[in-house]
Design a protein around this nucleic acid. Sequence first.
DNA 1: GATTCGATCCTAGCACCGCTAGACAATCAA
DNA 2: TTGATTGTCTAGCGGTGCTAGGATCGAATC
Lengths: 192, 192
Amino acid sequence: MSVRERKERERASRERLIVATARELAEQKGWDAVTTRQLAERIEYSQPVLYSHFRGKREIIGAVALEGAAEMAAALRAVTSAADGPRVRVTALARAYLDFAERNPAVYDAMFQLDGGLAFAREDTPEPLKDAFAALLENLGEVAGDGVHPALFTETFWAALHGLATLTRARRLPPEDTERRVELLVDRLVVV
Amino acid sequence: MSVRERKERERASRERLIVATARELAEQKGWDAVTTRQLAERIEYSQPVLYSHFRGKREIIGAVALEGAAEMAAALRAVTSAADGPRVRVTALARAYLDFAERNPAVYDAMFQLDGGLAFAREDTPEPLKDAFAALLENLGEVAGDGVHPALFTETFWAALHGLATLTRARRLPPEDTERRVELLVDRLVVV
DNA sequence: GATTCGATCCTAGCACCGCTAGACAATCAA
DNA sequence: TTGATTGTCTAGCGGTGCTAGGATCGAATC
């Protein structure tokens, strides 16, 4: 059975290569440049190989999104665990969120802008997505204020961050004042 | 010169037809279905005719975006002028904004998600876009609170609305609680 | 009224896209 | 060694945005 196992390992390894390469290509040249042909050439296999791992391009985007969600959750927890006081934590959280979006625009798009075929806010939502939301909830729930449901507050705060991230990157908002917008958001929304 | 003028009128009329048809098609079947072939067939001309009016698909999206911006500005002013008291006005504004986004998803995408080749937040920004932002600023500036720049406040509030609109439509947020999220946003952000 | 000539529009085609059928080669079991 | 199975590739389908070049048509001139 060891031969079979080796093959399975190799196959899993190639799948990771596909996802990593798609991500890399997307960050370098944008998702438009992530064509099945380009991707196949970069991994040095033919196009149909991609379809033996994923149903199509959509699923590849979804895989990148899941990878990104796990990273984002880790990044958020890293900064919030190092901050003490709810107010300081939330500020750090907001900055880390926007920082992640800015540093990984393609991954962020895969998560929240593109269609990766993933289900959000449901029971069958993939674990990494649930966990990323949980990372937000952990820090935002405690500053929701009396009578405001923690999840609802988290959703609203998240939406505001998402709006800042996307409008800024789409050049709809000038990037200079991002920090002041974050401060305003935290000042007004957070109840300490 | 009357012949020339008639031709110019017809040409302008055809241009409006292209934009209106693109918008209609986008709302019916999504922007992916707005291909130059589909569009050409619907207006009953050949593909190259499109390129005698617009540089390419991007510019057509841009034209739809401008049309949408003018409409949105009008819609926002319509509801805010009928509401008295800053607080009530802002609530009405927020609802009208999200309502516009929900009723005209393709137009909203053209304005804020897709690349229509338009410049935002600059001197050379097209007038309809400036005016749509102005419609927000008119109502939001007065509730920014002391020491907070009206434009900065408007940008932040807008970003929050944009986040709600896009995450909800992309099924990242459950649609049921939209109203409560808006209330929370207005409650916390607005200073009366 | 016939004829030129320029504007206008269409046919045909380019290089690319996502995706897949079917041929082929490599590997395994008997 | 043979036969079946698995894996991968080549080639191709119908689609995309966009454009070159020829046909057509109508206005202006003789």
